[in-house]
Design a protein around this nucleic acid. Structure first.
Lengths: 191, 191
DNA sequence: AGCACTTTAGGACAAACGTCCTATTTTGTC
DNA sequence: GACAAAATAGGACGTTTGTCCTAAAGTGCT
């Protein structure tokens, strides 16, 4: 009836492989090996590799949006919500240690390839950016909400990059503690 | 007499291309095109692509060491020296906007490729790390000098990643200003 | 000028890549 | 059970990749 299952498997496998090996280094053959379908069968689901990339980005965008929506409920206050964001570093520290941040590394790779999909990959950042911005606005930081959002995003990216370079999970925890303190400081100055 | 000239040209061209296009995406053919030598001639200077990568990393290590040594003289005080480091973001903002940080992006790429040279690439970070650490120690921060050095490195990496993602030079200047203020804070607390 | 050594050009080579075609199998519907 | 559509398998294709070989050109020394 439907190819949803196979197609979804392909996209999810590609998602993981693009993260762990990079987009360009991941081949059709490698994805096929994971999904356990023949290489030739790809053409039925995706005409080009770029189409898979688009699907992967779309998948990540969807998953991210769902996560952000969930945080709006789970985190009672804006501060608690922003803490949810910071906490990704802790939750994913094992993978980050090995492969960095999935968003940051993909964006960087596509930038170097001058790939058309880089714009879409950046939308992943934008999703976090505007979500964080609105949370900082709720904290009373109307003028510099975007600045704070970008700052927090940058801090997270830096932590991921360094933790990956030095294979250092402890550094992640160290910096997360500082980020919590930084956040608390911006709460006090708002009230 | 010597192949220094040609060899140096190859390494320098590879250095630029690895930065702007990534290591894996850069082919022998592309380097040859830039250096204007035949593809086959590579084998005389470098047996494998990995040897070129090693040479590029060694070149970057050398250049970095020279730069750090220079800063020790130019920057009179430890604070002025650390400012030299922060100022790279401003000096290289145009390239960072397009390709990110050469150290961070290379390290990330090699990590995903599980490439043996990743360890050497990380040495580039170590060079900065220990140099910054000693400067913070001179500022009186004996216990957390390394922590501060890593923090500053991470901040810089984050700025580069986000500036590249959003093609935003203004964000670099914004964050550099904050980094200067952050640094000043750590000067005051030392005296 | 002659000779040994260095450097280069050009191409061969197998392997891997993304892409694409076609025959076959599976699936849902009547 | 018959039949159209969806899904898959297997392989062909032209390129490009890193690697490697060999003949030729350049270079320095006697």
């Amino acid at each position: 009836m439907s190819d949803k299952s196979t197609r979804a498997h392909i996209v999810e496998a590609a998602d993981q492989l693009f993260y762990q090996q990079g987009f360009e280094h991941t081949s059709f053959a490698h994805i096929a090996e994971v999904v356990k379908i023949s290489r030739g069968n790809f053409y039925y689901h995706f005409k080009t590799k770029d189409e898979i990339l688009d699907a992967v980005i779309y998948l990540r965008l969807s998953k991210t949006q769902i996560m952000l929506d969930k945080w709006l409920i789970e985190g009672g206050t804006p501060v608690e919500r922003i803490r949810c964001f910071i906490n990704i570093l802790i939750l994913n520290r094992e993978k980050i240690k090995h492969f960095g941040c999935p968003v940051g590394t993909l964006t960087s790779e596509l930038a170097k390839l001058k790939h058309a999909a880089q714009k879409d990959a950046t939308k992943l950042f934008s999703l976090f950016r505007f979500w964080l911005k609105s949370q900082f606005q709720l904290l009373g930081h109307m003028k510099n909400a975007d600045e704070l959002a970008m700052h927090l995003l940058a801090r997270s990216q830096g932590v991921a990059t360094m933790a990956c370079a030095f294979n250092d999970e402890k550094f992640i925890k160290q910096e997360v503690t500082q980020l919590y303190e930084w956040l608390d400081h911006y709460v006090d100055s708002a009230t």
